[in-house]
Simulated scan of single mutants.
Amino acid sequence: MKVLVDNQRCEAHGQCWMVDEELFPLDDDGYSAIPAGGFDVPAGKEDVARRGVDACPLQALRGE
């Protein structure tokens, strides 16, 4: 599974970060610090990643 972020949609609500601080890092202003190309979710963390994606109120995150 890969997680991607649409930085144009992110409004720094931090809901993903509250699910998992390591998978969903934030920058100093509270916006997503996920790299532009997204990241591959480590084995065994897929359920947590899905919860983080689903937690975003603006659907700025997506898992594929």
Rank of each mutant, 00 (worst) to 15 (best):
K45F: 06
D40K: 12
H13T: 09
L23Q: 09
R62F: 07
V53M: 02
G30D: 05
P57E: 03
P57K: 07
V5R: 06
F24P: 02
A43N: 10
C56P: 05
Y31K: 09
A60W: 06
P25Y: 04
A49D: 05
Y31L: 02
A33P: 03
P42F: 08
V41R: 01
M18Y: 14
L58K: 13
M18C: 11
L61V: 03
E22Q: 14
R51Y: 00
G38V: 08
P35A: 12
E11R: 14
E11S: 13
P25D: 03
L26F: 06
L23R: 12
D28F: 09
N7V: 14
D28T: 12
F39A: 02
R51Q: 13
V41W: 00
V19K: 11
V5E: 06
R51E: 14
G38E: 06
D20S: 10
P25C: 03
G14T: 00
D28I: 11
F39R: 02
P57Y: 07
L61R: 04
C56H: 05
M18N: 14
G14W: 07
D6P: 04
V5Q: 06
A49Q: 06
P25S: 03
E21Y: 07
C10I: 09
F24N: 06
A49H: 00
A60I: 05
D28C: 02
G44I: 08
P57D: 01
L23Y: 00
A43P: 10
E21T: 14
D40F: 03
L58E: 13
V5T: 11
C56I: 02
Q15A: 15
R9W: 10
N7L: 13
W17C: 07
L26E: 08
F39H: 06
K45W: 03
A36I: 12
R62T: 12
G37M: 01
R51A: 14
L58C: 11
W17F: 15
A55Y: 04
R9P: 05
G63D: 02
G14H: 03
I34K: 08
